[in-house]
Design a protein around this nucleic acid. Structure first.
Lengths: 187, 187
DNA sequence: ATCAACATTTACCGATCAGTTAATGTTGAT
DNA sequence: ATCAACATTAACTGATCGGTAAATGTTGAT
């Protein structure tokens, strides 16, 4: 029970931080939105930073699970899956309440490379790269690591721009660019 | 004189916001770092938001000027200039105190698309796209607008990842990806 | 020298920040 | 019913938030 309460807290914090930003959302507000007292939160998390780290771990799991399943649902063979990454992203961009990448936001607010929040955000990107590399390998890419890194660059650029400019347009641009990169890597 | 004082203020705020984040840096701290009183700042800017907008306008001018001149210095013909964009970015990534893109950070803290800070950040990206499109046209790209948007995607992804992972490596990856996109667009 | 106009300062406003203390439930075993 | 263990609370801390009012320089024209 106490565990599920903690999870509820993290879920709520995730939503609030994603919609409002980490510095902008205070612990009082988090407590009020979760319907508990601030002290109750501090029973589960020693500091705000710990709570943020917990939300990032949850988000990492959520996002990568979602992406992996969505890609598998959209395409069968590895080559098509590499492209399907950008179809999945396009769907995300058009969702209500899309406001960019949680980890880009986190690293934008906690700027020092040694900051645990920054480190956790970097790790998320590394895990994505590893996932992309796996598909690139199965697709028979000449240099799977290189292709994975290119896909990652395109993905991050697309997310940033989808939040600033026209999301549908950016999704198309990113997919077109990915197609060129994939073709080149599999040639 | 009063104008240059204002400019000094904006310069100082730019540095502070870039290194520390917008919410994290308070007006008291800005005043102390600038060596003036808070009231003196509020004589020039009605709100913190106005000061932030002024820093973003300055940063837009600084960054685009720097990029344009650096690219022109690095390459003569338009095709090479498109690639040189990523040499210039690579230099920036390796500078001391590089902490990502000011506008990505701004749009990460001011999330609503209607927020003036967000709007200003989007405008910066649009201006960059226009700059890229101009070079793409001179280079004889099949679809200059499309290439410009691809270059922009690569650039934003590279900046984000350079702040999270290995900057030199990311710069190389981005340039390699750009080369493929440029070749394709000029084929 | 005086005085008005402007620039700058100190000191303050209520609100909120992250985090804590001390008191008040609530629960389960006896 | 009692009491210990735990969960939860309201109320508070000092610091800082963005922004302002009132007081104190500083300056230039007369």
């Amino acid at each position: 029970m106490s565990l599920s309460k903690r999870d509820e807290l993290v879920q709520g914090a995730l939503k609030a931080f994603y919609a409002g930003g980490f510095h902008a959302i205070g612990m009082d507000r988090l407590a009020k939105e979760a319907g508990v007292s601030k002290t109750a939160i501090y029973k589960h998390f020693r500091t705000k930073e710990e709570l943020i780290l917990a939300t990032l771990r949850l988000r990492d799991e959520q996002f990568r699970n979602w992406l992996i399943r969505r890609v598998e649902a959209l395409a069968e063979n590895p080559r098509d899956q590499l492209l399907a990454i950008f179809d999945a992203l396009g769907e995300w961009f058009l969702e209500d309440g899309f406001k960019g990448c949680m980890f880009i936001k986190a690293s934008s607010e906690y700027l020092d490379r040694e900051d645990p929040i920054h480190v956790t955000s970097a790790e998320h990107k590394r895990l994505l790269k590893t996932y992309f590399k796996g598909i690139a390998q199965k697709a028979g890419a000449r240099d799977p690591e290189a292709l994975a890194k290119q896909i990652l660059v395109i993905k991050e650029g697309a997310i940033v721009l989808a939040h600033l400019l026209d999301p549908a347009e950016v999704a198309d641009d990113a997919k077109g660019l990915a197609r060129i990169a994939i073709e080149d890597a599999l040639r």
